[in-house]
């Protein structure tokens, strides 16, 4: 596992971030909003990998995409190196784009099929005017291709000539072209073969060690997240319900949702696997258009109390852990 996190140097600080989408259908229909990200706060340190887990549709990707401003935040702040980028636009925003990059989930869709590998990797350099001459750019592209384990003579190839793992490495090379300080990895391995997944993860870890980059690692494969992350945040219906050191959360989840999520991780040993008790959740993920009152998890929570319906639990510190749950609050008071 990569080390050297600089705890007092915060690279990214997200504060009470909200991303709502308008889901009103038709001209005269009742106004509806999807609360995809609802009041999320966390910090990421320099050189750290921050894992973000949760089931499909809980707002993980939306959170990631809001941080890089693919979507506009509805409220809250996104601070990069101490500067809020939530409201900025145009050239001011462009200068921040260099510091923060995004690796997409689908390596088949994230590379423009009509561009050669060289053009793809050069594009960010051209946009930001980093290099003056074509030769300088070519040299940098070759170097980047070698960094990700491809050959410099792949420069004239088209993306469709590569395998999934190779393409994901091309897209990693593209994000590195701008020397970012922070990369959001949006399920970068979920579309890949298991044998290739380890390759990509190792590459990401190696890059982190060499370049001191911080990651926000979005995934639903919990064992992989535990392996790569220093800290983990568990997300449910647009909110973070638990946040703590990766190992602690993994071995001793406190929030009922984290417990259910972790009980679903398969165990390689069949004998141990039988002993393990699986918590089955009742019902479906509620619609973010019409979320439950109070705690978002109460409709599926085995420990739901009256209080849970009335007010929303806030994140509270328990040692190094933050949990938003009234049951945990009562047990620890």
């Amino acid at each position: 596992m990569p080390a050297n996190i600089v705890k007092d140097e915060v690279v990214l600080k997200v504060d009470h971030l909200k991303t709502y989408f308008d889901a009103t259908k038709g001209l005269f229909a009742k106004k509806q909003t999807v609360k995809a990200v609802d009041d999320v706060s966390f910090e990421i340190y320099k050189g750290e990998t921050f894992g973000l887990v949760g089931e499909s549709g809980c707002g993980k990707s939306t959170l990631g995409r809001t941080i890089v401003k693919i979507y506009e935040p509805t409220a809250g702040s996104i601070e990069i190196n101490g500067r809020d980028i939530a409201g900025i636009k145009g050239d001011e925003l462009k200068s921040f784009r260099k510091d923060i990059q995004y690796i997409f989930q689908d390596p088949y869709a994230s590379l423009d099929p009509r561009m050669t590998v060289g053009e793809i990797i050069k594009e960010p350099m051209k946009i930001h005017g980093i290099y003056k001459t074509e030769e300088e750019m070519d040299a940098r592209v070759s170097q980047l291709l070698r960094t990700v384990g491809l050959k410099p003579d792949h420069i004239r190839r088209y993306p469709h000539e590569f395998s999934g793992g190779q393409r994901q490495r091309i897209s990693i090379a593209r994000t590195l072209a701008l020397d970012p300080k922070f990369i959001i990895c949006d399920e970068p391995i979920s579309a890949l073969d298991v044998s290739i997944q380890a390759q990509i993860i190792n590459l990401l870890e190696q890059i982190q060690r060499e370049l001191d980059i911080s990651y926000l690692f979005i995934a639903h494969d919990l064992s992989m997240v535990k392996h790569i992350s220093h800290r983990i945040a568990v997300m449910y219906l647009g909110q973070i319900v638990e946040l703590g050191e990766s190992h602690e959360v993994y071995t001793n989840p406190m929030h009922p949702y984290s417990q259910a999520l972790l009980s679903a991780v398969p165990v390689p040993d069949p004998v141990k696997g039988k002993e393990k008790e699986r918590i089955m959740l009742q019902g479906e993920l509620p619609s973010p258009i019409d979320p439950p009152s109070g705690c978002p998890f109460r409709t599926r929570c085995p420990y739901a109390m009256e209080r849970c319906a009335g007010e929303r639990p806030q994140m509270k510190m328990y040692g190094s852990r933050q949990v938003a749950c009234f049951k945990v609050e009562e047990e620890n008071s």
């Binding site: 995409r65 890089v68 990059q101 995004y102 689908d106 994230s110 590379l111 423009d112 960010p124 946009i127």
Partner: peptide, 28 residues
């Protein structure tokens, strides 16, 4: 909505670059 168009946006590409270099070229 394709990821390569979003990727260009994240890189800092302007609207005309995304439209003409990526979207129109791909509808050629």
């Amino acid at each position: 909505e394709q990821e390569y168009a979003l990727a260009a946006k994240v890189m800092g590409a302007g609207d005309s670059r995304i439209l003409f270099k990526h979207l129109v070229v791909n509808s050629i």
